[in-house]
């Protein structure tokens, strides 16, 4: 474990908790893409199937459990509890256009052709594009609440920190996982446009508005 990965994980955890609290306290999921949250729940489910078979550390196991519980709780709040506030008209990104190609790629490019490894690879590829419905929704509505922007900043920042973690691990212990690195770079690049707007706008207290 290194500081980049630890801060990255905490940023990820903060993002997940922040979104859950926002939906819960405002009792509304307006402006939130349910599809992205469904994709994140799928990402955690397919990535952490080894939760019961391999033990890395208390930290690793407890974070996996927290991520999975929060992901399903968020999906539950969006699609069940506060379903009436879910914005169907703007959450229209065709998620199947992400899941199907990513599923095919996971079969073609992976480290090991075993069910657990293919599902892990699927999860890595899917996570890199899972935010697209949310970014698409913001570009359609033309704006995002500031809390949603903070959520996206933490979420985007976590994988950017992971890239630094991978650089650190490569030079300090010769570890590298090309699949995770390439997917992580794609994921972080998708946030660049948002990062620019966040830094130039939200920090100064303006509302974030993506070019529609």
């Amino acid at each position: 474990m290194n500081v980049f990965r630890l801060v990255g994980d905490l940023s990820h955890l903060l993002a997940i908790i922040m979104l859950l609290k926002k939906i819960w306290s405002s009792r509304s999921c307006a402006g939130i893409s349910g599809k992205s949250q469904l994709l994140f729940a799928l990402v955690f489910t397919t990535r952490y199937l080894d939760l019961f078979t391999s033990f890395i550390s208390v930290y690793n196991t407890s974070m996996k459990v927290i991520y999975i519980l929060c992901a399903y709780a968020t999906v539950y709040l969006i699609y069940v509890k506060f379903k009436a506030t879910y914005d169907h008209n703007h959450d229209t990104f065709r998620a199947e256009f992400l899941v199907v190609p990513v599923g095919g790629l996971a079969f073609l490019v992976n480290h090991d052709f075993t069910p657990l490894e293919i599902l892990w690879t699927f999860s890595i590829y899917l996570e890199s594009v899972a935010i697209m419905p949310q970014l698409f929704m913001i570009s359609k509505t033309g704006e995002a609440e500031s809390i949603t922007s903070h959520y996206l900043f933490c979420l985007g920042g976590y994988r950017a920190l992971y890239i630094i973690n991978w650089l650190y691990r490569f030079y300090s212990e010769g570890f590298f996982d090309l699949i995770a690195i390439v997917a992580g770079c794609v994921q972080t690049i998708l946030y660049c446009d948002f990062f620019y707007l966040y830094i130039t706008k939200v920090i100064y207290g303006q509302k974030l508005s993506l070019p529609a």
Partner: peptide
């Protein structure tokens, strides 16, 4: 080496 057998990252 590529350590893909045991994914130790979240």
């Amino acid at each position: 080496h590529v350590n893909e057998d045991m994914h130790d990252e979240l």
